[in-house]
Design a binder for these strands. Structure first.
Lengths: 106, 106
DNA sequence: TGCACATATGAACACATGAACATATGAAAG
DNA sequence: CTTTCATATGTTCATGTGTTCATATGTGCA
């Protein structure tokens, strides 16, 4: 490859930090428990215990994973009495998962 | 939540195996070295050494990661003489990364 | 205030994973 | 067929990650 083209390719690469963040984001999707939780929230918001019951997971495990999803800004939450209701944060989440699904279902 | 609604939600969940595969797919995107390689291939196909030079990675590391990308069917490859040229497998890859980028750049 | 319920957090453990190094395979040229 | 170049593979090691169990926080109600 020519030196000039090589340099051009290099220029088009996003900053390392951006690519790092991108990988961090996908890492969050890269666990079946978290994917299950996200999918469960596709239909409607759910509280922690509902998610745990629905997916046959421990409350602790769900809570831990929800924290990771929360930190990645993939889910929102609101309090209602003693319960915390979680929901998908935005439509990017749906879009990303749907794209992944298309690839998987080939 | 009512028992009936609970059951309905359960029905809409994709099979465990599908969700497992989905998570496995995202896991592949969840490493900055692999994301860099995929991004490098956005513009055009590249051989192993070109990728290594472009990203300042060892040949071994690139090869290992390419194998993972290959197994996940995210990249194709063809031989040309002694070199192996890799390229993105389909447009899902671009779409998924682009979606992720949108989320990251908020 | 005291108790029960819902969720969050912390620590420990088992397991997965990426990087680095050495080595093997495979193709082309002499 | 031997050498060289390009790539692939195997192994080791340090680090990261998810789950479980125990415990803490927080809310509502008697």
């Amino acid at each position: 490859m020519e030196e000039r083209e090589f340099a051009a390719l290099r220029e088009e690469m996003p900053a390392d930090e951006v690519l790092y963040d991108l990988a961090e984001l996908f890492k969050v999707f890269g666990d079946s428990t978290r994917v299950k939780i996200l999918y469960a929230l596709f239909e409607r918001e759910l509280c922690v215990q509902e998610i745990a019951d629905l997916l046959s997971l421990s409350q602790s495990s769900v809570s831990h994973q929800l924290r990771i999803l929360k930190d990645a800004k993939l889910v929102r939450f609101r309090r209602e009495g003693k319960s915390m209701y979680y929901s998908l944060d935005d439509d990017h989440v749906r879009a990303i998962i749907s794209m992944g699904m298309e690839h998987v279902e080939e």
